[in-house]
Design a protein around this nucleic acid. Structure first.
Lengths: 139, 139
DNA sequence: GCTCGATGGTTGAGGTTGTCAAATATCCGT
DNA sequence: ACGGATATTTGACAACCTCAACCATCGAGC
């Protein structure tokens, strides 16, 4: 483990933490909790996801997901569909309303924050390329 | 706003989210909640911090900080000291125990995750340098 | 077919995080 | 000394989170 790697990670963490307020703020614009907005973001329209898989993505207990999805479902942003072939599984699908809200949230959250937007164009491009390489294979 | 900047930010966000489980896991090793570990990290030993300032760093309501600090104080990791010159303010200081736990948490969390450690040495170095430039002036 | 262990999801209890409104104490400018 | 701002706390209430317990279903093997 190189020093560069660990320092880069620490800086990346610090950068994210400095933007800690963004998700809650954007979520609030849509009257959603931060977690609800996050989950909505994770659900790709047209690609149903089993609850269990979502729990794994969130690194949290399955019982936790039940409540979060309950509240998203009450707002009509998400639906629980049956899975073909396995009656235990419930597939999460984004409704039309959900897809609309999701699109706007994704757009708002993709705006680069000041620490990145103030970098030189060359740095921005290099950063994008390096991070793209880092994320290949991580899904 | 360039495309590179926004894509770089989106990738950085994805990378962080893919490591979402780390803080809770490390915090649990010390029997702390994620937020307690985060706050302990924010408090530099030898540098007292007013509660208010901490609330601003956390982007949350001041009343929230009261409870978090209460629990850290119960464990003897943090202390509320009087501020010289202004009796309204309470300064947070890390105790000896707190500094010891903090040191170990910081160390555990600074280990670079797979997406970064698997980058080439040149990319790791470039990433560190670019992020360092991004974070100058952000404190 | 039938049993058994594993898996997906929910429920209930209990603690933590988060917001808001209201209360208290202190500061500071006039 | 008055009055508006600031720092912190309290109480009420919603959301998040984990754990243990539960039910339904699946799948392997007899």
């Amino acid at each position: 483990m190189s020093n560069d790697a660990s320092e880069a990670w620490t800086l990346l963490f610090r950068l994210y933490v400095s933007q800690r307020g963004r998700v809650p703020r954007v979520a609030a614009e849509f009257e959603l909790s931060p977690m609800q907005a996050h989950v909505l973001r994770l659900l790709e329209p047209g690609t149903p996801l089993p609850m269990r898989t979502l729990a794994r993505k969130l690194c949290c207990d399955a019982s936790n997901v039940t409540g979060i999805v309950d509240r998203l479902e009450e707002r009509g942003l998400v639906r629980r569909d049956a899975a073909p072939g396995d009656r235990r599984i419930k597939m999460l699908v984004v409704t039309e309303d959900g897809a609309s809200v999701r699109r706007r949230i994704v757009k708002r959250l993709s705006e680069a924050p000041e620490p990145i937007s103030s970098l030189s164009p060359a740095d921005q491009r290099a950063l994008r390329e390096i991070l793209a390489r880092a994320m290949t294979g991580t899904a």
